[in-house]
């Protein structure tokens, strides 16, 4: 027996999901971060973040169409993490690293938190 593994399939699907997000197609939730609004797909959010997984597996909360995050969350940090969820690319800037890491801790994105720790260590002279 043979099996054909399409090695680009996961990234092709993610690319299409990101295109759907940019065109606001089938996005089903608005995330509010300090008055900034971000449209997204619940399934993508919960696949990437422990916090969103907990929210959207809760039968009382899963139908919410808007979620307000803690006002301490930095919108720029959230922008970078949302972009990461839909592209696999994490843009780490020294000026924003603490905002990104604290947002990743809040969103329970443990592997991103570890990566931020390593980035901070490697930048430390």
């Amino acid at each position: 027996d043979s099996c054909i593994q399409f090695t680009r399939h996961a990234s092709d699907v993610l690319l299409n999901l990101n295109r759907l997000r940019s065109r606001d197609i089938l996005t089903d939730v608005t995330i509010l971060v300090n008055r900034q609004q971000f449209r997204a797909h619940k399934t993508v959010l919960m696949a990437c973040s422990g916090l969103f997984y907990t929210i959207f597996t809760d039968s009382l909360k899963c139908n919410l169409n808007a979620i307000s995050l803690d006002p301490k969350v930095d919108p720029e940090g959230f922008t970078i993490l949302l972009e990461f969820m839909y592209t696999s690319r994490l843009t780490l800037k020294e000026s924003l690293i603490m905002a990104i890491m604290n947002t990743a801790i809040y969103l329970q994105m443990d592997h991103v938190v570890d990566t931020c720790h390593r980035f901070i260590k490697s930048s430390d002279p």
Partner: peptide
């Protein structure tokens, strides 16, 4: 896929959704 010969296909796997129509 133990016991299965896996052939790697490197090309695009699905259609590409346009950025904007």
């Amino acid at each position: 896929y133990e016991g299965v010969n896996t052939i790697k296909e490197m090309g695009r796997s699905i259609h590409e959704i346009p950025r904007q129509e």
